[in-house]
C-alpha cells in the first residue's frame, strides 16, 4: 500500500506552526472534516481526544499517530503534518514530537485498520525517511516525499 494512496494532497501539511497537542488535534479534526461530508468536526475531535485519554499516541522518536474511530465513514482518512518545532506530546519516550500522522478510521474494520497502520509504520520506521519529511518545507514537497 502506497502512502500517496492513503494520504490525499490536501491532507499533507508541511512545516505548520502549532504550539500544543490540543491545537494539533483541533487542526487534524478540521482537515478530516473537510474530507467527509456530514460529519461534525466536534465528533472527530472528541474521537481523537478520547483516544489520547487512553494513553498518548506519541509512539517515540518524534512521531505521533493521533487517531480515532468514527461511525458513518466508509474509508480511512489519513493526514500527515510536520510541525516546525517539536512539541510536548507526552510521548512514551518523553521526546517532543514533530511528525504527526492523523488517522480517522471507520468503526469496526479491524483487519483493514491494522493494514493501514502497517503501511504507515513501514515508512516511518526508516530514520532517513523521517528526516526527509522533516526537511520538506512546502505541502508539495512533503507530498513528493511520501512514497520516496
Amino acid at each position: 500500500m502506497k502512502l500517496s494512496e492513503l494520504i490525499t494532497k490536501d491532507c499533507a501539511k508541511a512545516a505548520v506552526l502549532f504550539t500544543s497537542k490540543k491545537r494539533v488535534l483541533e487542526y487534524l479534526s478540521e482537515l478530516a472534516q473537510q474530507q467527509i461530508e456530514g460529519i461534525n468536526q466536534h465528533d472527530i475531535l472528541d474521537a481523537l481526544l478520547a483516544r489520547e485519554k487512553l494513553g498518548s499516541t506519541g509512539i517515540g522518536k518524534g512521531v505521533a499517530l493521533p487517531h480515532g474511530r468514527l461511525i458513518g465513514i466508509e474509508k480511512p482518512i489519513v493526514m500527515l503534518l510536520t510541525n516546525q518545532e517539536p512539541i510536548d506530546y507526552d510521548a512514551i519516550d518523553n521526546r517532543p514530537v514533530d511528525i504527526f500522522v492523523g488517522l480517522i478510521v471507520p468503526d469496526g474494520e479491524h483487519q483493514a485498520h491494522l493494514q493501514t497502520l502497517a503501511a504507515i509504520a513501514d515508512k516511518l520506521r526508516d530514520k532517513d525517511y523521517c528526516r526527509r519529511l522533516r526537511q520538506a518545507q512546502t505541502d508539495e514537497a512533503l507530498f513528493e516525499v511520501l512514497d520516496n
Binding site: I59, V63, L114, Q115, A118, I120, A121, R125
Partner: peptide
C-alpha cells in the same frame, strides 16, 4: 511501536 505494528 512502529515495528510491532508492522507485524499486523
Amino acid at each position: 511501536v512502529l515495528a510491532l505494528m508492522l507485524l499486523e
